[in-house]
Design a protein around this nucleic acid. Structure first.
Lengths: 164, 164
DNA sequence: GGCGTTATTGCAATCGGTGGCAACAGCGAC
DNA sequence: GTCGCTGTTGCCACCGATTGCAATAACGCC
């Protein structure tokens, strides 16, 4: 995946530069900046949206075959604690990481086409609001992945089942 | 082996009898009624609410040490296809089965105390309604587990963070 | 009751993810 | 520059779950 013209980090605010921040954050907490972590961060910074744990491992291995899963997962844990990524579980039960969550947002995942959509905060509030009102339960929106059928697959399925 | 006097199916209320139905359903589909499946069904019928896959395996093993996980999981799959159970994923990513879902209902799971609550259809509709309206996305309510903090843990956490 | 078809089982390998532990190495102190 | 503390790594074993495959056995048929 040579994305020669990566566009995500142009503009000088949030992209790869953010990782320099991570190093400082790490150090200021007495944690350490290691080559392995740098690699993982590199992989993550080249990622838009979601990535599963195993994908991170895979991509790290592509660059450094020595990479071991436990290191990756532990680093992912640390990163989550620092707030640089968040994780949720896909419909398939796989661990899914989300890079640089600007704001808490849930996900919709279509079990038909596999597509995912993000719920912006307003939508998320529409979901969590009634629950909070009724149960006093504060939903972890960022942790939420709702599976179902998107509009496209829905009508496709309807047509299919009608037609036979 | 020697449980000479099986008692599980005595009493004749809706619980165990429902499984007799399963046997017929299985047969009418050309599927088979095996001792292993009977055991799994037995375990399931003794279960209220939720149970994880590994718990089913464990309980089956307690009665028949020969039980193998693959058989259990495959049977669970079949049972789900027949509509006798449904599965979702817990916040921990574990597979969680739900016995005899009368109706589609989501779950709330508190990451503080581990407690779970069920969303009745009206609540579930309140959740899925806005999503459908906005995205045309039909959420699988039965597959939905929302993690977060329940009212109790929420106020406990609030107090704690205030106090330090 | 016996036979054949084929769904099901059990094994073993595999996958994604986790945890313990000894060796290593980053980073601050001097 | 060197030393020491301790956070981190890498290995290994393990857990929960899944899959391919050959052997087994349930069920319908005669």
């Amino acid at each position: 995946m040579g994305d020669a013209g990566s566009t995500a980090d142009i503009g000088g605010s949030s992209g790869a530069d953010a990782w320099i921040d991570v190093r400082d954050e790490l150090r200021s907490r007495g944690l350490r900046w290691t080559p392995q972590r740098r690699l993982i961060l590199d992989v993550l910074s080249a990622t838009e949206g979601h990535i599963t744990g195993s994908e991170v491992v895979e991509r790290c291995r592509a660059r450094d075959p020595e990479t071991t899963p436990s290191t990756v997962y532990r680093t992912l844990d640390v990163l989550e604690e620092l707030g640089y990524i968040s994780h949720s579980h896909s419909a398939a039960g796989r661990e899914e990481f989300h890079v640089l969550p600007g704001e808490d947002h849930g996900h919709l995942q279509c079990r038909g086409c596999g597509g995912t959509w993000e719920l912006d905060p307003a939508d998320a509030a529409a979901v969590s609001g009634p629950i909070r009102a009724r149960f006093g339960f504060a939903a972890d929106i960022g942790h939420l992945t709702i599976s179902g059928l998107c509009a496209g697959c829905l009508s496709a399925a309807a047509g299919r089942s009608e037609a036979g």
